[in-house]
Write a protein that binds this DNA or RNA. Structure first.
Lengths: 237, 237
DNA sequence: CCATCTTTGTGCACGCGTTCACAAAGACAT
DNA sequence: ATGTCTTTGTGAACGCGTGCACAAAGATGG
C-alpha cells in the first residue's frame, strides 16, 4: 500500500513505455480541442472518451509523466497541454525535409498538422529536375543533390521519405550520412539503418490488407470455408 | 451518439493473432519480390531478413496458417504467396471508395499498391462541386451525394477517408449507413462507429510526434537541457 | 538403409501492456 | 472541523506477443 510515500514515482525517469508515448499525441489533440473551447479542467473519463481510449489506461499513461491531476477534480487542461508538449519535445522547433514531391509528398507539404506542432518544413527535395524551383505549399522544390547541404545547414534531424520504393534505401542512406537520425517512411520497403536511427513506417497498402482480412472474416462467418480447400497445382513435396 | 468504444476485440479471429495478421502483408511483399525473381524456395531465415523481422517470429506466424514449410528445405515461394493472399482475402476483389480528393486523396488514388493487391477504386468522392467530373488517376471525381448510390451499386465494403478532420465523422456516418464495414481513416480525428465496423487510422502528425519524442531523448542524453525548467504560470489547484 | 545435416514447428519462459478495483487525496458543503 | 463525494493514482492479476532453444521431420549423400 502506498501509505508511506517515501520516494517520488520517478517523474523524470525516461521509463515511459512506448505504447504510452504513442498515445500522448492522441491526448494532446483532444486537450488542444478542449483548450480552444476554453474548458478549464477535464476528468480522465471525459478525456479518455474524447481520445477513444480506456480511462484507466489514460490515468496510467499520465502517471508515467507525473502526478498532474487533482483528485476529485480532474486535470488542468492548459497545464496538461504544456506538460505533454514538453514531454514529446514539441516545445522546440523540428526542421523536417520531405524527399519525393509526388502526389504524396505534396500532400505532406500541404498538411497543416505539421506547423501547428512544432514541425517546420525546411525543404522539399526531388530527383526530378523538371520539378526544381516549382512552388509546392509555398516552398520551392529543390534538387536531391542539395540534400547534404540543406540537412547540415538547417540542422535537420527528421527526414520524411515519400519517394518510390526503389529510391527509398538510397535516399535513406544519404539522409543518415548527412546526419538525420529519425525517418518517417512512406515507401513500401523495409529500410535498413544503423543503430541509433529511428524509422517509423506508414504503409497504405498494409493497412488496407489488414482491413481486407477482417472484412473477409466478417463475410465468411456464415459461409464456413474450409481453409485447406482447393489449392493450385503447386504443392511442396 | 455512440460512445467512442475503444474496441480491441481480442484475437479471436480465426485463431490468428492480430499481430500476426499485421505482419502477413509484410511477408507477402517480400515473397512477391522473390516470386518475381523466380526464386523457388526460401528459408525462414532469409525471408525474415527480407521482411525485417525475427525468424522465430516468422515461423510462429506461419504456424498459425498451417504447416506450409518443408523441414530441411524451407518454404515454397509460390505456394506461400497463394496461402497468404487467400488468408488475407486478397484473392477476391475489394471495391474501395476514396472520400476527399485533395492532395492526399489524389495521392491515394494514384497509389499503385492498390490494384496489384485486389483493391479496386470504385469511385472518388468529394464535396467540392468544382472538382466534379475532373479526372484523377483516370477516374472522374463524383459528388459526395452519390455516395449512397455508389456504395450500394458497387457493393463497396471499404471506405477511405481523406477529408479534413471536420468532415470525417459525417462522412463516416454516411459510409456506415450505406453499408461500409471497414474504414481507413487519414483524418486526424477519433471516429466513432457502431460495433462490427472496423476502423484503422493513419496519422502523419502522430508519427512525427513519436519521432520527435525519441529525437529529443537522443539529443537530451548529453545536452541535459533543464527538463524541469519553468512552467508557465498555470498550476492546478 | 543408415548417418548426417538442414530447417521447420513449437513448448516454454519472460516481459510488456491492459484492465480491474480500490485506497488515498482532495474538493466542497454544512 | 468533519463528513461526504468525486476522481486520481496504482497495486495486482491477467493475457498477449516475443524470442530462445530444441526435438521432430525430412532431405541428401554414401
Amino acid at each position: 500500500m502506498a501509505t508511506g510515500r517515501s520516494h517520488r514515482p520517478a517523474t523524470r525517469s525516461r521509463g515511459i513505455p512506448e505504447a504510452t508515448v504513442a498515445r500522448l499525441p492522441l491526448y494532446l489533440r483532444a486537450l488542444t480541442a478542449l483548450s480552444e473551447r476554453s474548458v478549464p479542467t477535464v476528468s480522465s473519463e471525459e478525456l479518455a472518451a474524447a481520445a477513444g481510449v480506456n480511462s484507466a489506461k489514460l490515468r496510467k499513461d499520465f502517471s508515467y509523466l507525473g502526478s498532474y491531476g487533482t483528485r476529485g477534480v480532474g486535470y488542468d487542461v492548459e497545464y496538461l497541454v504544456y506538460q505533454i508538449s514538453r514531454e514529446l519535445g514539441l516545445t522546440q522547433d523540428w526542421p523536417v525535409v520531405i524527399v519525393g514531391i509526388g502526389n504524396l509528398g505534396a500532400a505532406l507539404a500541404n498538411y497543416g498538422g505539421f506547423a501547428s506542432r512544432g514541425f517546420r518544413v525546411a525543404a522539399l527535395l526531388d530527383a526530378d529536375t523538371a520539378l526544381a524551383g516549382k512552388l509546392v505549399a509555398g516552398l520551392p522544390v529543390r534538387h536531391i543533390d542539395e540534400l547534404e547541404t540543406i540537412v547540415a545547414d538547417s540542422q535537420v534531424s527528421i527526414g520524411v521519405i515519400a519517394t518510390p520504393a526503389g529510391a527509398a534505401q538510397e535516399v535513406t542512406d544519404r539522409l543518415v550520412a548527412a546526419g538525420v537520425t529519425s525517418i518517417l517512411n512512406f515507401a513500401p520497403t523495409v529500410l535498413s539503418v544503423p543503430d541509433g536511427v529511428d524509422v517509423r513506417k506508414v504503409d497504405l497498402s498494409i493497412e488496407l490488407q489488414i482491413l481486407a482480412f477482417h472484412e473477409q472474416r466478417k463475410a465468411g462467418d456464415e459461409d464456413r470455408q474450409e481453409p485447406d480447400g482447393d489449392v493450385p497445382a503447386v504443392m511442396p513435396a
